[in-house]
């Protein structure tokens, strides 16, 4: 398989990374190189093999329903790019 420039732009858009035309060509070459490496996977017949998502075959631990976290807004917002009245500010969201 090989990625087109359009594919590169589509995934860059999905990933919210600005890629200009010159960069897109570079990404295309590099990504196709990497996919060349990845394609080796396709030669293996994995029919009937259970996909492995986790290193251990364990189940989720459940937390008791209790409020344990204090308000730390001030500390958290000390590192925020822009806040006002306790809110994080972002460019206008249009629905």
């Amino acid at each position: 398989m090989s990625l087109s420039i359009d594919d590169v732009q589509r995934i860059a858009k999905l990933a919210r990374i600005r890629v200009n035309e010159a960069e897109a060509a570079g990404y295309q070459t590099q990504l196709n190189g990497i996919f060349g490496l990845i394609e080796a996977m396709q030669a293996v017949d994995t029919t009937g093999v259970e996909p492995m998502s986790h290193a251990q075959d364990l189940s989720q631990r459940l937390r008791a329903d209790a409020v344990t976290e204090p308000d730390r807004r001030q500390a958290f917002q000390a590192v925020a790019p822009q806040t006002e009245d306790g809110l994080y500010l972002v460019p206008k969201v249009i629905e």
Binding site: Q82, E84, D85, L87, Y88, L89, V90, P91, K92, V93
Partner: peptide
């Protein structure tokens, strides 16, 4: 998202 005007920006309450 709170759309009241914060100098043309939106406020986020999480």
């Amino acid at each position: 998202s709170l759309h009241e005007d914060f100098h043309g920006m939106t406020g986020i309450d999480l």
